[in-house]
Design a protein around this nucleic acid. Structure first.
Length: 454
RNA sequence: GGCCGAGUGGCAGAGUGGUUAUGCAGAGGACUGCAAAUCCUUGUACAUCGGUUCGAUUCCGGUCUCGGCCUCCA
């Protein structure tokens, strides 16, 4: 089976044919570093992380680029509000982002370019666009002339004329046409600015991705990903800029977009106050649980973070890790059903069902070698999803907010052992209940009593 | 208003023109001094109204509901 991908450009699943089958290139829109990442920001990171792992499994070489946008008006505003410098803010937020995404077990991209380090490349593209008649300078701004691009709207399906009819913003006076968008804008002394042929200024929102993708992946590359909300205007404008700059060449062959994340049936937003940051959630539940929740819904579907989705995910991961207990590592193949599921437009929920099948087989087989092999199959298969990478013991003893220390638990277990030897089951049960109340589970076996945090 | 997506059993969530998704939770049983884990059994879902069809949750059309986007960002 070959990899099939739903392409937003064509609105259908297509067989994936890389430009160079020896080297696949992918670009995903990264964060604007003005604030902590929220769960919605984490979804594309985790989803495309699985795609990256899958591509790496299927192809000899993969280059994955994900940008850091460190120049933006939101950053200017946030820095002012926090009373800190822009550099301090972007550095702090970027570090936090890396920390949060690592806690979700997302691999680092191969390249993580920063917008502020590619201003010259942006200026170069803008110059070419002006030379080719696709852009014009006006009052210190440079604007892209949408009507000069006959293909504008192919990604989003929007009609150029309709875009304006529903517009909710006032049209700036320096625009030739209302639908034109900014490539470059002037900066005051209080704003970050760079010398340019159009005066001191800063880039518009979309140009950075065009510049950095071109710099690292070339004029046309394989896959471009991001959240569904970026389809318009961000990706539409990226395509317009890049293809008009590069003689009509396609920017990317496949466009993939993940669905939105909601909370309790509502859109996650600051104004509604239903806004969870990743680090906030990480203080409550393990990163792997968050990752599981983000993967348990197909990436193109909307995902609703309701009250107990995390609890369900925790139970499932407990079950998986329990099945992995006692495993001795050996090299085995990834489960074929899981691999096929992933190759069908990244059907991760279906892939997870194959993990459950493996768990069931592990418990049912009576053969120790077979069991060990199946456990390894479970582990390496889950690893392709970035799951089950911990040692089971580590997993079960790293619960958040533990109310009792390991030493104390051991002491109580010894007391209970004596009570059981004395057939004083009332006392033994009292100790069990006491520990249960503190989130500790006791596991009796012929070898003695082990324990876990629940 | 325009474009797009979605409505599946208590919950989460795949998929399919006719045959079990899967999981979580629940119930009953086995095992266990008691538990946990595990195993067995159990629950006959696909918004609504029409149409096509031998047969539709699955295709087509209407309706209702929900969500996203409709530019330089709240």
């Amino acid at each position: 089976m070959t990899l099939r991908i739903y392409n937003t450009l064509t609105r259908q699943k297509e067989a994936f044919k890389p430009i160079d089958s020896k080297h696949v290139k992918m670009y995903v829109c990264g964060p604007t570093v003005y604030d902590s990442a929220h769960l919605g920001n984490a979804r594309p990171v985790v989803v495309f992380d699985v795609l990256y792992r899958l591509l790496t499994h299927l192809y000899p070489k993969v280059t994955y680029a994900r940008n850091i946008t460190d120049v933006d008006d939101k950053i200017i505003k946030a820095a002012k509000k926090n009373n800190e410098s822009i550099d301090t803010l972007t550095k702090r937020t970027t570090d936090k982002y890396h920390q949060d995404m690592a806690a979700l077990n997302a691999l680092s991209p191969d390249i993580e370019p920063r917008a502020t380090q590619h201003i010259q490349q942006m200026i170069d593209i803008i110059k070419i666009l002006i030379d080719k008649g696709h852009a014009y300078a006006a009052e210190g701004h440079v604007l892209f002339s949408v009507k000069t691009d006959p293909n504008y709207g192919t990604l989003s399906g929007f009609d150029k004329d309709q875009i304006i009819s529903g517009a909710r913003v006032e049209v700036a006076p320096y625009k030739n046409d209302p639908e034109d968008f900014i490539l470059w804008k002037p900066s005051t002394d209080a704003m970050p600015g760079w010398e340019s042929p159009w005066g001191v200024g800063r880039p518009g929102w979309h140009i950075e991705c065009s510049a950095m993708a071109k710099a690292y992946l070339g004029e046309t590359f394989d896959i471009h990903g991001g959240g569904i909300d970026l389809v318009f205007p961000h990706h539409e404008n990226e395509i317009a800029q890049s293809s008009c700059c590069n003689d009509g060449k396609k920017l990317a062959n496949y466009w993939m977009h993940n669905g939105h994340l909601g909370v309790n049936g509502e859109k996650m937003s600051k104004s509604l106050g239903n806004f969870f940051t990743v680090s906030e959630k990480l203080s409550e539940i393990p990163g792997e649980v968050i990752r599981y929740v983000l993967l348990a819904t197909h990436y193109r579907q909307p995902l609703d973070w309701t009250g107990d989705v995390a609890g369900q995910a925790k139970n499932i991961l407990d079950k998986f890790y329990n099945a992995l207990d006692g495993n001795e590592r050996q090299v085995v193949d990834i489960n074929s059903g899981l691999l096929e599921s992933l190759q069908d437009d990244l059907n991760i929920p279906l892939a997870l069902s194959h993990l459950h099948e493996l768990v069931s087989e592990i418990h049912k087989t009576g053969d120790a070698d077979q069991k060990n092999k199946l456990q390894n199959e479970l582990r390496v298969s889950a690893n392709l999803l970035g799951l089950l990478y911990q040692d089971p013991h580590q997993w079960f003893k790293s619960a958040q907010g533990q109310a009792i220390e390991a030493g104390e638990i051991e002491t109580l277990i010894q007391q209970r052992r004596q009570a059981r030897a004395d057939k004083d089951f009332a006392l033994a049960d009292k100790i069990r209940d006491e520990l249960t109340a503190k989130g500790v589970v006791l596991l009796d076996s012929s070898d003695g009593t082990a324990w876990r945090y629940k």
